[in-house]
Nucleic acid binder design. Structure first.
Lengths: 191, 191
DNA sequence: GTCTATAACGGGATAGAC
DNA sequence: GTCTATCCCGTTATAGAC
């Protein structure tokens, strides 16, 4: 891997592990096995490198989610596929953790990719719910936007509870909980 | 307010705003209008002061939740009271944000109060759900532990989504979403 | 109890040689 | 492109005077 690429990947890992405030350029360089000079040659500074790392993480997260959504199956099954996909629960969400970082939130350009990814995710889930309703699978009384937000929030909150407990259990409990609630809005008569 | 007390309250505010890694002793002193010497007289160091601040925040959060839970009303109404209580949504959760802090998670003593508070919250919600089931209010098929985790996670995740969007909307959407899902498990025949 | 001085260290970046 | 030297500042204390 070239130096530039190693720098971005190292930044992605450290942002995940320690956040923006907790990550120093020096730490990124060490992990990437690159010198000071290399980093400041390829990037204007810490912020610039972080921006690229965050953008890439946001793209990947959306791509992985879309893989789950694009499977064929009922709307419920597609949501199930997303909620039960493999995750490194105890490491948390690469994007969610950035929302707790004061420097990220203070910088519109750094916050933007995070905002867009969560916005896209909720919109996509809402679309799937609406499709399910159109096909008579889901109770049409359900507010798609609200339920989509609840699902997205459960995942993010699940990570928080898992970290607090240093255990994956509360995460999986939360996912099963929201899935069971959602399952009860599936129309029984549906095929 | 005495100096010691001002230091703890300042630490609470700064931990909320900037987290542990992002908060320096100097910043706490400035906010508390206390000198270096005062801080190191009353506390062994940054960690020691943070521990007291975190413990206090955990206690307060549990106390506020219990106020909501202790109101009379159905199980659903008590949960509703908790979920719709006044919150400073865009500032996030004092405890949830700490789970994203590498230094907090690396220190058992700093993590403990956070862990206990979330554990207590989930246990308490599960109890209320079980009570609701015993009284024929909630569908008895529901797994109380899982739904309690889902509710707790929705709140925490709602904060994350709100911060990302710099808007309270996704938080309130998520809360309404989980409430509507929960409402559909209330037995209609119940008085 | 509170103050100031001091210190060792790391963060974040610039400059210029190679 | 990458390296080393250098810089200024903030962090997290400790020491001792008042």
């Amino acid at each position: 891997m070239e130096t530039r690429e190693r720098l971005v990947e190292s930044a992605r890992e450290l942002l995940w592990e320690r956040g923006y405030v907790g990550t120093s350029p020096k730490a990124i360089q060490r992990r990437a096995q690159a010198g000071q000079g290399s980093m400041y040659h390829h990037f204007a500074g810490k912020r610039d490198l972080a921006l690229e790392a965050i953008r890439r993480s946001a793209e990947k997260i959306c791509a992985i989610a879309e893989e789950c959504f694009a499977t064929d199956g009922s709307a419920f099954e597609r949501i199930l596929s997303y909620l039960t996909r493999q995750r490194q629960v105890l490491r948390g969400c690469r994007l969610g953790r950035l929302t707790q970082d004061p420097d990220i939130m203070a910088s519109p350009s750094l916050r933007q990719p995070v905002d867009e990814a969560f916005g896209w995710l909720q919109k996509r889930l809402a679309e799937i719910i609406v499709q399910g309703q159109a096909q008579g699978e889901f109770d049409s009384e359900m507010d798609a936007t609200e339920v989509a937000a609840a699902i997205t929030a459960t995942v993010q909150g699940g990570y928080v509870l898992a970290k607090a407990a240093e255990s994956e259990e509360p995460f999986h409990n939360a996912i099963r909980g929201v899935l069971s609630l959602l399952a009860s809005r599936v129309i029984k008569a549906h095929k």
